[in-house]
Design a protein around this nucleic acid. Structure first.
Lengths: 213, 213
DNA sequence: TATTTTACTGACCGAACGGTTAGTCGCGGG
DNA sequence: CCCGCGACTAACCGTTCGGTCAGTAAAATA
């Protein structure tokens, strides 16, 4: 007679130890990358034994994948927050998404950096598809927003919607990536706050830099 | 009487072994990152013994730093190529630099990725300043180009020159970073060639996406 | 209460790590 | 001719790596 396995934990509850492992592993992986972090580092940081990590997760790769999954979900959820106060103006909706996207990136730097690491790894297959899916979903959302504005004749029809979406996302990601380096650069006045950056970029992209005589 | 050290190698010539070590180390570091590459990997790839690497370089960090220096120099030189055929039109000069910058990034993916890795490492001090200097130099060059165009009243004076420079560089770097992922995305028509991308981005930034009624 | 299951640990494993040592080989200068 | 020196290597060092295992304490199940 087959035993029915009744797990003590209700599906999505984890023991205190497992949670601290996930938390500290994310922190370490996000700041140093996969290969620079050892199981011992994580165990010490989380205050558990090394063997305990292998009790909860089958391998280092498995742990990383779990951490990455959580990060991807958090990252996706952050973009779905406050979906009700969407303005009617299609342009304002793009602007809304744009600044919200940057805020989401900055609010969860560990998740963002984790996905960034994974997109950077070329050889490994590990969780690259996961990271790419996050990227692809965000991308297609912006594309559809742009297309909608084009159908309302608010955005030039000759503008490539996918290119504009790419530039918007890229502007945010590049800001996130270089936010530390940016402080060392002279003559940078646009990065005092994310909001300032968002509005400035959006305005520049909207009107263009070329002087119309 | 102090012996004058006459190195067999004239100052900047290196032995065949040392060259292959540098070459293969760059290849491996660029694709996998610092921590994922072992001295053994490099030795095997370069066809030399592990000890030989420590004969030419004092440590793994030292080797990496040397590789990074070379990459930074190559990256800087690539931007100085063909400086004579600069057009008179300030706007065309920006466009020239913009497309040339992207071509330089793509033509030397190993150098580019190496610098990218180093900018990403937050904790390590290793060669981060080097990578930042490359970034800063490129940045200030674009800023001055923009300012020049503004003084000729070709670019709107109310546009933040540093922001525009940041967006231009960011557009190129982001394209480089995501060029592999880009192929998997649907509805992406702007990435058939770097030239097409360059002109499309420049055009969009120049005129803006907003429809003027 | 008796039995299973889970959370957790210290001791341990072979492999691989960065790095060292002792020594071989070939070549150029005195 | 030989001697010193740079290029180069096999073998080795202590340490740390990812991962295993036997066992314990406590909690859930029966």
């Amino acid at each position: 007679m087959p035993k029915i396995k009744l797990n003590t934990n209700a599906d999505n509850t984890l023991s205190k130890g497992a949670l601290s492992i996930l938390r500290e592993a994310e922190e370490l992986f996000a700041t140093k990358g996969f290969d620079a972090v050892s199981i011992n580092d994580i165990a010490k940081q989380a205050g558990v034994s090394k063997a305990n990590i292998f009790h909860h997760f089958q391998s280092k790769d498995g742990l990383f994948l779990e951490v990455l999954k959580i990060a991807c979900n958090r990252s996706a959820q952050a973009l779905d927050a406050a979906p009700e106060l969407l303005p009617d103006d299609p342009l304002a909706r793009i602007n809304n998404f744009f600044s919200g996207h940057l805020q989401a990136l900055l609010a969860q730097p560990r998740s963002t950096r984790l996905i960034q690491w994974e997109l950077m790894m070329n050889g490994e297959q590990r969780g690259k598809r996961l990271a790419e899916e996050v990227f692809a979903e965000t991308f297609s959302r912006v594309v559809s927003l742009v297309r909608e504005a084009q159908s309302h004749e608010i955005i030039k029809s000759e503008v490539d919607a996918s290119l504009l979406a790419f530039l918007l996302i890229g502007a945010n990601v590049f800001f996130f990536e270089t936010r530390d380096v940016l402080k060392h650069l002279p003559d940078v006045n646009f990065a005092k706050s994310p909001e300032q950056y968002s509005t400035a970029v959006f305005d520049l992209l909207a009107r263009g830099f070329e002087k119309v005589s």
